[in-house]
């Protein structure tokens, strides 16, 4: 089949809401779009382990330490599901890691912000994982089968993350004035970066056209962001946290919250490498990847040995 025939047959399948599977023919641009998106998603899960890992040894109780460890292990697992999904598109794990290290592949901006104290672990679970869930629930219906299936699995696990974060915030809001102030401070620092996780406004979203046509993306950045805001404002009110947005108000007519302007200048600065932790996150990943080389070499030597025996 020539390229046009392939594209037509492909689009026909998409229009019928059929999933695309690894061995199906697909336009090269669809394949590349997915590799970019899924690998970026995988890198985000893995880099996202860093701000939380920062607090394992300083968790305030054995219970919270066990929970945090389990959550971080989940994030590593999510990265692996997603790397596997991307590999079905013909890119190797090595290439993806190399693209991360060279800066060719990005990861979510949110992980370039620091986790300064224990309240940040609450805010990350509640807001960052909360925003991620809204996005990932929508992606469960994405057109590429392996990606959609990874999302189903991830969503099942992710709601525990959001709840444990909300529990941390709720407990701090029941504590001393100092603890309440810490929780509000974390809220103030994480709220806006969490809104930025959904990406640019629909009117400035350069990659959306094909993503919608191919049903990789099912709902727009602004629709998903709005859903997150409406759910989260309610949860904040219940535990007595205020939203750091003086323009936030209920819109009776639209039945949702209007919010203030997002600082896109900050968003672009962080994407371009000038966030508070960009260099630290990447240096950390590269260091441990390189220091772990001997483990991979030992496994490869063992594999060779086994193969020779058989």
């Amino acid at each position: 089949m020539d390229a046009i025939a392939i594209e037509n047959a492909f689009q026909e399948k998409i229009d019928k809401d059929l999933n695309i599977e690894p061995k199906d023919q697909m336009p090269e641009k669809y394949r590349l779009h997915l590799i970019r998106q899924i690998s970026q998603h995988a890198h985000s899960e893995v880099i996202g382990m860093q701000p939380e890992g920062n607090w394992i040894t300083r968790a305030p109780s054995l219970r919270s330490k066990q929970i945090l460890l389990a959550k971080i292990q989940d994030e590593g697992g999510h990265g692996l599901y997603l790397y596997s999904a991307a590999e079905t598109l013909g890119i190797s794990r090595e290439e993806m890691i190399e693209q991360l290290h060279s800066g060719k592949a990005k990861y979510s901006n949110i992980f370039n912000y620091p986790s300064l104290n224990w309240a940040d672990i609450g805010a990350i679970g509640w807001l960052v994982d909360g925003a991620a869930i809204v996005n990932q629930v929508s992606l469960q219906r994405t057109s590429y089968g392996p990606y959609a299936r990874a999302m189903v699995r991830i969503c099942k696990e992710e709601s525990f993350h959001q709840r444990q974060g909300y529990e941390i915030m709720a407990n701090m809001m029941k504590g001393t004035n100092e603890q309440k102030a810490m929780a509000q401070d974390a809220m103030n620092r994480w709220w806006w970066p969490s809104l930025m996780m959904f990406g640019p406004h629909d009117s400035d979203s350069p990659n959306s056209g094909n993503a919608f046509k191919w049903k990789i993306k099912r709902q727009s950045n602004d629709v998903l962001r709005q859903r997150f805001i409406d759910k989260t404002v309610q949860q904040a009110e219940v535990i007595g946290l205020s939203i750091p947005d003086k323009d936030l108000k209920w819109n009776e007519e639209k039945q949702c919250y209007d919010h203030g302007e997002i600082n896109w200048e900050e968003f672009n600065q962080v994407i371009n490498g000038n966030g508070p932790c960009n260099k630290q996150r990447m240096a950390h990943h590269i260091k441990y990847h390189n220091e772990g080389a001997w483990v991979r070499e030992a496994a490869a030597a063992y594999q060779k040995h086994i193969n020779e025996l058989n």
Partner: peptide, 23 residues
Amino acid sequence: AGSVHASDNQMALQNARDIYTRR
């Protein structure tokens, strides 16, 4: 359920357990 990377069957089983059966 999915896939894992491993050098041999033992490692594959352990990785599969850690990645796909945490609950």
